[in-house]
Simulated scan of single mutants.
Amino acid sequence: MILVTGATGTVGREVLRRIGPRPAVRVMARKPERVTAVPGTVEAVHGDYDDPDSLARAVRGVDTALLVTSRVGRDDDARFLRAARSAGVRHVVKLSAAAVEDDRADDLITRWQRENEETLRGSGMEWTLLRPRSFMSNTLSWAGPVRAEGVVRGLYGTSANACVDPADIAEVAVRALTEFGHAGRVHTLTGPEALTAVEQTAQLSALLGRPLRFEEWEPDQARVLWSTRHPAAVVEALLQSAERQRAGAKAGVGNTVREVAGRPARSFRQWAGEHLAAFTPH
């Protein structure tokens, strides 16, 4: 049996769309009723990283698991892995981040991901690490201003990022969960090219057939705006990450999607073309 965590998130939803009916699939979520687009053969169960009993029930009978955690600084990975090892889980595929392999990255989020990876490596179970660049879907945060004002706002708009389509991450995850040969491997996942936010704005403008402009934030503006959504330590981590991107740390393009999935990585233009409704005025 395969267990999918994070099934209500960006990558987890895509995994469920792609995974087949064999072997059996179970989904763990704090609120199973929120799990959508689940084939009839998929079992949705309650599981909470703060509730060891619920974790034990969720991993019972599981052979392979997709581990997705998001509460920065928490020990959710360690809690899950303890339960998984006790239940006899053989293989864990973990969603991590490409920044882990950058020696210059020492922000809170990256340190947390490194610690989680080391916990998995030392768990005694087989492991596979997925290290994606930024998700193309992060640009959905632009949708409101694009619809209302025809504007995209952001920090360091001319810095490049080889962002990746979450569908490609999910495709690689499904293969790691269902095929042999992925244990002990690290899959760093990028899109087919490095793009700046200004270039993404131009592509989106062409697809929408309407003019869009990019407005640059100052770092202090970004700090204030992000502080409305994130704790101070996370905001500083995001600012450090943006500085590394400005220095070129996120512009490298890899070939892992093609190597694993047997096809090229999807472009931002492809992703945006399938999500134009989000950016179109109602």
Rank of each mutant, 00 (worst) to 15 (best):
P264C: 07
T190C: 04
R269L: 08
L238Y: 14
G252Q: 14
P132K: 10
P21T: 07
H182W: 13
V27S: 02
V152C: 13
E126G: 12
G191F: 10
A277M: 08
A143K: 06
R26C: 03
W217A: 00
L208P: 01
L3M: 04
K94S: 04
S141H: 12
G61L: 14
V146H: 01
P32G: 05
R60G: 06
D77A: 15
A29L: 13
R85G: 00
D168A: 04
N255R: 14
M28L: 15
D107G: 05
L55C: 04
V72E: 03
R111H: 06
V234Q: 06
A7W: 06
A58H: 07
E216I: 11
R269S: 11
G20R: 05
T36Q: 08
A58K: 07
P23M: 07
A206P: 01
A249V: 10
L16Y: 03
W142I: 08
N116H: 14
A237H: 07
T119V: 15
R34L: 15
R185T: 15
V42S: 01
S159A: 15
E33G: 07
S96L: 08
V186N: 00
P264I: 12
E259A: 15
T158F: 10
V45K: 06
A197C: 11
V234L: 10
E101A: 13
R153H: 12
M28A: 15
S134V: 13
V68M: 05
T196N: 03
R244H: 10
S227Q: 11
I169T: 00
D168M: 05
V35L: 03
E117L: 12
S137A: 13
R175P: 00
R153D: 03
N255C: 09
R213L: 09
R79P: 03
D51L: 13
S205T: 08
G154H: 11
V151G: 01
R13G: 02
L16V: 02
F268P: 01
T228M: 10
L207E: 03
E218F: 12
R133L: 13
R263M: 05
G150T: 14
D75L: 14
R79M: 09
S70A: 11
V164R: 01
E179P: 00
G262V: 11
E14F: 03
V186G: 02
V234S: 04
A233G: 03
V172A: 02
L204K: 04
W142K: 04
R133P: 03
L177S: 02
L55K: 06
M28F: 09
N138E: 08
A84P: 04
D51H: 09
L212C: 02
V224P: 02
A167M: 06
K250N: 14
W226V: 09
T5A: 03
N255F: 14
Q221F: 10
V35N: 00
P231I: 10
D106F: 09
